Computed example of a mutant assay.
Amino acid sequence: MTTRKADAQHPVQPPAIPSAAATPLTPYARLPRRHHDRHIAHSTVDAFGQAHWLLTAREPGREPGRGRGAMKPYDALVVTAGPDGRSQETELSALRARFPLIDALPDGGFVVADARSRRSEQHVQVFDALGRESWAFRVGDAVEDLLADRAGQLWVGYFDEGVFGDDDLSRPGLRRWSAGGEPLWAYEAAQGASEIWDCYALNVAEEGAWVCAYGDFTLLEVRPDGSVRQRANSTKGATALAVHQGRVTFLGGYRDDRDRLVDAALHHREVRPYASGRLVGPDGAPLGRRRTVSRGPRVYVQEEPYTAWTVLDISTQGGAGS
């Protein structure tokens, strides 16, 4: 897969707003040490706040002599842990994803998708609570984010190679599916409205979703009925965002702004920044390579080597730099 986002060569546009001190993350959940010898194929935090690690014996890869996309099925272990330190394990059999993305479903099952796929491949597998595959379907190539909501619906954001590729399923940039593979909704830009060329940041909240996408980074609020409100946004390049009670906090940006926090107020047609700062680790150290998951007022952050999740929760913390 291609790494873009913070490394992309786009002009830096720092916000002309007051700059504040650093905001530290809070420790959240850890992978038990006994599993540290396994390969972490993917990890996420679900809609109910549980962290999950998809562990394999080695990095998934194609078998020698096989063509593109031809995978020998492999087994995996899902380790689930919460802030209380308790953990549980679920074995999954016969996974086929070369670049796996995982999330949990409200019935105790899991969904695993391959980020890259051909149009002939059923690249999304759904497993029941016992780890048995129930069915498979496809959602399109170049999956950037796969997030299940509390109802078990799947929000899928796509990166540019899908939006501008030859897979029609990916072209809207954002879609919502049932856990059974039924297409429920797709983003469609009205005349003069913002297109999703690359879904940089996707927040799946209890009701609806929020999107900040390349090219113009307009903040899109997707309501439960599928209607979309657009708000003009001057903060460019954010890769995660949190939303709470009329406030949005953006994380990330290009080059030196990859750890930037920008607080903004939600107005009818725009977001208005009022403070900025930097996000740092719980110990105050700069952040390294990381994954992020955005859920309502929370941004979960997992730094390399991806064995622990930390959290920024704007419903309990002040603004940037507080």
Rank of each mutant, 00 (worst) to 15 (best):
R247M: 04
G277H: 01
E195G: 09
D257V: 05
A205L: 12
G277M: 01
V271Q: 03
C199R: 06
R272P: 06
G192T: 09
D283K: 08
R229T: 11
D283I: 06
R223S: 11
P224L: 03
G296T: 06
E207W: 10
R290F: 06
L251A: 01
W197F: 14
R255E: 14
P224C: 00
F217T: 02
D198Y: 04
N203Q: 08
T249F: 00
F250V: 05
D216I: 02
G215D: 13
C212V: 14
R291Q: 15
A238Q: 00
E270W: 08
A201K: 11
E207P: 08
R290L: 13
L287Q: 11
R229S: 04
V222I: 15
D198V: 02
R258H: 11
S276F: 05
Q230F: 04
G226D: 00
A201C: 14
G192R: 12
V293Y: 02
R223K: 12
D263C: 09
T292S: 10
P297Q: 12
D259L: 07
Q191E: 15
V280H: 03
R295V: 14
S294H: 07
A265S: 10
A213H: 02
A242T: 01
R289W: 13
V204M: 03
G277W: 01
A201V: 12
G288T: 04
E270C: 03
Y214Q: 13
C199T: 06
Y200R: 10
T249G: 03
V271K: 01
Y274H: 10
S276T: 10
Y200H: 15
V262A: 14
G237D: 05
R291M: 14
V271D: 06
H244L: 09
V228T: 10
G252I: 00
L261S: 00
T218R: 02
N233A: 09
Y214N: 15
R223E: 08
A238E: 01
E207R: 15
E270K: 05
A240P: 04
E221S: 12
R298W: 04
A264G: 08
Y200T: 04
L241W: 09
A193Y: 06
V228E: 08
L261A: 04
G226V: 02
T249M: 02
A193F: 03
P282M: 03
L241P: 07
N233K: 09
F217L: 01
E221P: 03
T292F: 06
